[in-house]
Amino acid sequence: MMAYMNPGPHYSVNALALSGPSVDLMHQAVPYPSAPRKQRRERTTFTRSQLEELEALFAKTQYPDVYAREEVALKINLPESRVQVWFKNRRAKCRQQRQQQKQQQQPPGGQAKARPAKRKAGTSPRPSTDVCPDPLGISDSYSPPLPGPSGSPTTAVATVSIWSPASESPLPEAQRAGLVASGPSLTSAPYAMTYAPASAFCSSPSAYGSPSSYFSGLDPYLSPMVPQLGGPALSPLSGPSVGPSLAQSPTSLSGQSYGAYSPVDSLEFKDPTGTWKFTYNPMDPLDYKDQSAWKFQIL
């Protein structure tokens, strides 16, 4: 009977010793046993002879290597770790002494450095960015050149030099007046198309007034536009458009034309069986010896 009264063996659950049927240790109110408190290391007290050895090595170098620390530790009968900690504390003490010396050398008012006064946003004049500046400075420094007289040679050079070769001289006033084509001369031969040399188009003023001019072949195509416009036809070669000034309004060009419109200028042929003959000019830059190549039959 006494065997049943004795408590059973101890069981360990999660490293906790349980005594038989008792489960009081598993209750929430019972805390787990805490780790033992780490003991504080005792402070090391250095003797005068030990301090002399350490100070002598510190005077040589503030960062001794492990071999120098072990050698000193053997002399003063201390572990190497204590020597390492002593050098660490000695360097910190040396830095603190240097900072105190710097503070003593500075004057009393030198510690508080005078800061520059901050400028207020409204006091300083700042350039306004509302208006974009002129990058080319046209509004201040540029002045347009004065327009020359209508009959000045410089204007003629600016007008005619675009179309004339570089080897030719500017046309005088008398020749510029001949550039304007007359109405009857352009409409006299509506079906004849003559190819003149390129030099005649640039230099010869008579080429624009003769039936064999460069633009005589364009007349049949330009004249039928007159009834559609409801007024006189516009002429690209009329009046002052080739003269001194090219800047004319469309209203000033509306009254200039080749001449009176005639039914002869239409595109319809009077004789459907007729042929169109292209007159060959020996001055043509295209060297075609066979003139029969310039004739064709309209079917």
Results as ranks from 00 to 15, higher is better:
286 L>T: 04
128 S>E: 06
143 S>K: 06
222 L>I: 07
138 I>A: 09
44 T>A: 12
150 S>T: 05
128 S>W: 07
90 R>G: 13
94 C>P: 15
102 K>Y: 02
221 Y>E: 01
264 V>P: 02
115 R>G: 02
14 N>K: 15
274 G>M: 07
26 M>T: 08
132 C>K: 12
283 M>A: 07
280 Y>P: 00
184 P>V: 09
254 S>I: 12
251 T>Y: 11
250 P>E: 03
45 T>D: 14
94 C>K: 10
249 S>N: 06
72 V>Q: 14
262 S>Q: 09
13 V>D: 00
153 P>N: 02
172 P>H: 11
196 A>C: 07
109 G>M: 01
38 K>L: 11
206 S>Y: 15
200 A>S: 11
146 L>V: 04
102 K>H: 01
183 G>M: 10
140 D>R: 08
73 A>R: 12
278 F>W: 00
144 P>K: 09
283 M>F: 14
179 L>E: 01
12 S>I: 14
14 N>Q: 11
51 L>Q: 13
155 T>K: 10
187 T>L: 10
159 T>D: 00
17 A>M: 15
277 K>N: 00
4 Y>D: 00
57 L>C: 10
39 Q>S: 04
22 S>R: 08
200 A>R: 06
269 F>E: 00
26 M>D: 01
279 T>L: 13
214 Y>T: 01
72 V>H: 13
38 K>D: 15
173 E>I: 14
109 G>H: 08
163 W>N: 00
10 H>I: 14
68 A>G: 10
46 F>T: 15
261 Y>M: 03
40 R>L: 15
202 C>T: 01
152 S>Q: 05
292 S>C: 12
239 G>Q: 06
263 P>T: 05
219 D>E: 09
243 G>H: 09
263 P>R: 14
64 P>N: 15
116 P>E: 01
135 P>W: 05
74 L>A: 09
23 V>A: 02
188 S>P: 02
232 P>R: 05
198 A>H: 08
116 P>C: 05
88 K>A: 15
296 F>E: 00
239 G>T: 06
271 D>C: 15
70 E>A: 12
187 T>R: 08
188 S>Q: 02
238 S>L: 08
204 S>C: 14
276 W>A: 00
85 V>G: 14
82 R>D: 14
108 P>S: 09
57 L>H: 12
23 V>R: 10
200 A>C: 11
169 S>K: 11
9 P>G: 07
257 S>W: 08
250 P>N: 07
70 E>S: 08
8 G>I: 12
153 P>L: 13
99 Q>N: 04
66 V>F: 12
116 P>G: 04
171 L>A: 08
110 G>M: 02
133 P>I: 06
11 Y>G: 00
260 A>N: 03
246 L>T: 02
43 R>M: 14
164 S>M: 15
201 F>G: 01
39 Q>V: 09
33 P>L: 05
84 Q>I: 09
